[in-house]
Design a protein around this nucleic acid. Structure first.
Lengths: 124, 124
DNA sequence: TTGCAAATACGAAAACTATCGTAGATATTT
DNA sequence: AAATATCTACGATAGTTTTCGTATTTGCAA
C-alpha cells in the first residue's frame, strides 16, 4: 500500500490539476492566487518537488511545461480518510459517517445516494 | 470559527488525553511508547507547546503536572472533516461517506448504526 | 540577430515541527 | 541531611515545508 501523503500546499495544487486537467505552472498559480497570496516561483518550486516525488508528471517538449496529476483524487481521498479515521475517529467508520452527516447537512439527493449505496449490504 | 489545527504529534497526544482523561506527561508518554519510539522530553516539550497554544490546560499545583485536553474529540473530528471535505472531496459529503464505507469495510453493526441514523431523514 | 519577456532551475532563507541533551527544581529514600 | 530519582524548563539541533531571490534558458518580436 503505497502511502500517498501530499503536503498541504501540494494538495492545493492537486486540486487544481484534478479540476482543470493538465495545466501549466502559470495556470495553476493564477488559480491559487484567487484564494491566496504567494509568489509564482513558490508554486513552480512546489510543482517541481511534486514531480521529483512522482505526485505529478510533466510534458517538457515545449518551453512551457504542462503538469498532470499522477495520483488520482480517489487515492488521495482514501489516504486522507485513512489518516483521520486513525487519528480522530479511533478506527470507527460509523462515527465518521455520522459526524459527517451531522455537521455537514447533506442534501436530499446525497442522502438518497447513501441509502442506495447501503442497500447492497441488505442481505448480509 | 476558531480553526483547530493540531499537528500530527499533537493529535497523538490528544488521543491519549481523550481516552484516558487528564494525565501526566509520564502517563501520556508510556501510552505513546507502545506504538512508537521516542524520548520522554520530546513528549514533555510537545505538551508544553500545546499548553502555550491552548490545546491543553494543566494543573501545576503538584510537582507533577496534570494535563487535560482543551479541545474536544468532536471539535477535532469536525475540523478534520471540514478540511478533507474542502481539499479532497470538493464539498461532497456523499462522496466522503461512500468512499469511507467502500474502502474501510464497516462491520454489520456499523452499517446498522448508519442505517438507523439515516432513518431520521425518512420523511423529507 | 539582438533584445525583451516569460519560463525554468537553483539555492538559500524563513517558518514550522520534532527530537533530545542538559540544567535546575522538587520530592523521596536512606 | 545527603544521595537519589523524577520532574519541569530551556535551548539547541535536525528535519520538513514553504517561500522567494537570482541566474539561466528559451522563444518571440523588433
Amino acid at each position: 500500500m503505497s502511502d500517498i501523503k501530499p503536503t498541504e500546499s501540494e494538495l492545493e495544487i492537486l486540486q487544481v490539476l484534478w479540476e482543470k486537467g493538465p495545466s501549466t505552472v502559470r495556470e495553476v498559480h493564477e488559480e491559487l492566487s484567487k484564494n491566496k497570496e504567494s509568489g509564482y516561483t513558490t508554486t513552480l518550486k512546489i510543482m517541481q518537488i511534486m514531480h521529483e516525488k512522482g505526485l505529478v508528471s510533466r510534458n517538457t517538449s515545449a518551453k512551457t511545461h504542462v503538469y498532470s496529476a499522477e495520483v488520482s483524487k480517489q487515492q488521495a481521498q482514501k489516504s486522507a480518510l485513512n489518516k483521520i479515521i486513525d487519528t480522530v475517529f479511533t478506527g470507527s467508520t460509523a462515527d465518521l459517517v455520522i459526524q459527517a452527516l451531522g455537521s455537514h447537512r447533506a442534501s436530499k439527493d446525497e442522502i438518497d445516494a447513501i441509502k442506495d449505496y447501503l442497500k447492497q449490504f441488505e442481505n448480509k
